[in-house]
């Protein structure tokens, strides 16, 4: 058994303090493939590559068993807010 979604979530949560996090297991159960959407203040002022590096580093242990990690979004709370407003203007909570 590889990595679980919960493991990925807890590592990301403890290291990157995300304000929004969505981890999807796309492996069909074997735990080798995940899609991640993450919003964190730590991404502020960083290029996409550096943001991905942060995520990869946070998952260093898990990466040994993960075959495919797709970081769909790695954005700042500010960007997240803008995206939420433009995509779903109603869901502003």
């Amino acid at each position: 058994m590889g990595v679980t979604k919960e493991q990925v979530e807890s590592s990301l949560t403890s290291k990157l303090k995300p304000s929004h996090l969505e981890v999807t297991d796309t492996s069909g159960g074997c735990g080798a493939s995940f899609v991640v959407e993450i919003v964190s203040e730590q991404f502020e002022g960083k290029r996409l590559l550096e943001r991905h590096r942060l995520v990869n580093a946070a998952l260093e242990e898990e990466m040994k068993e993960i075959h495919a990690l797709s970081i769909k979004k790695a954005i700042t709370p500010e960007q997240w807010k803008q995206q939420q407003e433009s995509v779903e203007p109603k869901s502003e909570a």
């Binding site: 996409l48 590559l49 991905h52 797709s70 970081i71 769909k72």
Partner: peptide
Amino acid sequence: ELVGGCDILTSM
């Protein structure tokens, strides 16, 4: 310089 992998390339 490393630009990135598939996700970053796709986004760019």
